[in-house]
């Protein structure tokens, strides 16, 4: 049951749109650039043969906390709104 909200949003296409919104916001606020810099630094240290997993784990530990609150707030609100909207549309 816990996966139901996720699955419902996937089904109606909302999840893709929400993901795109989050992505835009993270580009706009410069977070993506921060991630790029972290990656580039890591590559400079470890060479270009670096594996994806290494990059990802480093970024996760360093950059995840840098996401601005406003972005998080906006997305939480929108997700909630969409869940409610789906509830409405199923009930009617």
């Amino acid at each position: 049951m816990k996966s139901a909200p996720h699955q419902r949003l996937v089904m109606v296409g909302d999840r893709d749109a929400l993901k795109e919104l989050l992505r835009l916001r993270l580009v706009e606020c410069g977070w993506r650039d921060q991630v790029k810099i972290i990656c580039k630094d890591l590559i400079k240290e470890n060479g270009q043969d670096i594996a994806y997993d290494t990059l990802l784990s480093t970024v996760t530990s360093r950059a995840r906390s840098l996401v601005p609150d406003s972005v998080k707030k906006e997305l939480l609100q929108k997700i909630k709104n969409h869940l409610m909207a789906q509830e409405e549309s199923l009930k009617s």
Partner: peptide
């Protein structure tokens, strides 16, 4: 998922066969 049908299929069957996580 380029169609509604595909999206439905994705929603319903994209789960790990071993642990059922999405």
């Amino acid at each position: 998922s380029t169609s509604t049908e595909a999206r439905v299929r994705k929603a319903v069957s994209c789960l790990c066969h071993t642990c059922k996580t999405y």
